[in-house]
Amino acid sequence: MKSSVSLLILSWVLVGACAPTHKVFPSKMTDNVDHNFDFSRWRMMTDGSESKKVQLGGRIVSSQASGGTVTIVVGQLPIVNHPAYGPKDNGKNNGDFVIVFQGHIDESDLQSGNRVMVVGTTRPWKVVTVNDYSRSFPIVEAQCLHFWNTQGREIADFPFYEAGYVSLRQETVCAKNATP
């Protein structure tokens, strides 16, 4: 009995280790994404001459929703597979960018500190006003967004969160007119 249980657990671990990383977006939405996209170089190119389909991750700094458009200022973070799939804080200021999304996003998903991933198209720099503060940012026009409601914590901190067990609430939203 004990050996069969051990074998079962070992099998799960092996299957899990060999399995591909789970995806948060519909697979057709990530077609043609530039996987060699250089975020730092893009931030330096203020003219935005190149428009590319990208997948970026980060931490929500601030956000504002008005007139069916949601504007999210995001501090870029690298997307990692371990210890948990998603944007991971590397302790560095990698630079900010803005996600513009046409549609509705729940307020709880837009809390500062939440982790977010976006699939969308790069656009030229633009002055963006969020919470009465105007600044110029590089823009990503979002097709799909995925939120981890971490409230500033790491994704890997969940579900064994502090003094108890807390399931990490996640949400994926796509624009109505999103096309692969």
């Binding site: 671990v13 371990h82 948990a84």
Partner: peptide, 12 residues
């Protein structure tokens, strides 16, 4: 203790 980073989250 997370002994091997690349094993997480399978062995978190």
């Amino acid at each position: 203790v997370r002994p091997v980073q690349s094993w997480a989250p399978n062995l978190n």
